[in-house]
Simulated scan of single mutants.
Amino acid sequence: MLLRRLSLTAAAILLATACAPGGHEPSQPYPELAGPLDYADLVLVKKSERRLYLLKNGKPLRSYKVALGREPVGRKQIAGDGRTPEGNYVIDRRNPNSRYYKALHISYPEVPDRIRAAQIGASPGGDILIHGQPSDPRKAKPYLQSIDWTEGCIAVHNREMDEIWLAVRDGTPIRIEP
């Protein structure tokens, strides 16, 4: 009975989040809502809006406020510049035991990114992720969506990362726009 109550509470939270301003109700519920999962076929990040959208056939399933790299304006050029990449990539793997709460790896750097960095004699960097809060509670950032704090990653709240984790399969394209 406790598990059922928890499931109903989780469902209520997910529905409230989906219907909140800026959110979108999914076309089909997530497994926690006892329905089939509607997978996103594109992840779209609009850096200027600080938003991540999960899309299916061009229609939004969900929308999330994000924190970006500490220097969010402009395309990532080199390791350590604090910028979030821009361009077309793929979610190529996942890490449930990341030092951040769940992590989806983005295929940055691609060949053009490597060429740009090589032209200035630098490393393009790597290990760009969509992730939740730091796993170490002492490093959690309660102001997560108020400032850009990552080294170039895209950060969301942990409960939102749970939804993204379920809706995005490995191989899903991700487009990161200015």
Rank of each mutant, 00 (worst) to 15 (best):
L2S: 00
L2F: 02
L2P: 00
R5P: 00
R5V: 01
L6R: 15
L6N: 12
A10I: 11
A11D: 13
A12F: 06
A12P: 00
A12M: 05
L14V: 11
L15S: 11
C19D: 14
C19A: 15
P26A: 09
S27C: 10
S27G: 10
S27T: 11
Q28L: 15
E32V: 15
L33V: 04
P36I: 02
D38M: 09
Y39I: 04
A40Q: 12
A40D: 11
L42P: 06
V43Q: 12
E49R: 07
Y53N: 01
L55T: 01
K56T: 13
G58F: 05
S63G: 13
K65L: 09
V66I: 15
V66H: 08
R70V: 14
P72N: 06
K76D: 06
A79R: 14
A79Q: 15
R83Q: 12
T84W: 05
P85I: 03
G87K: 04
N88T: 14
N88Q: 13
Y89F: 14
I91N: 00
R93C: 01
P96I: 01
P96Y: 04
Y100P: 03
Y100H: 13
Y101I: 03
Y101E: 07
A103R: 08
L104S: 03
I106T: 07
S107R: 04
P109T: 04
E110H: 01
R114N: 01
I115F: 03
S123P: 11
S123T: 15
S123D: 15
G126I: 06
G126E: 09
D127P: 00
L129F: 12
G132T: 05
Q133M: 06
P134C: 04
P134V: 03
D136F: 11
K139T: 02
K139W: 06
K141P: 00
P142S: 02
Y143R: 10
L144H: 08
I147F: 15
I147P: 00
D148E: 10
W149C: 07
E151N: 12
G152S: 11
G152E: 13
A155F: 04
N158R: 03
N158E: 03
M161N: 07
D162K: 02
W165I: 06
L166F: 02
R169G: 06
R169M: 12
D170Y: 05
D170M: 10
P173I: 08
P173W: 13
R175I: 14
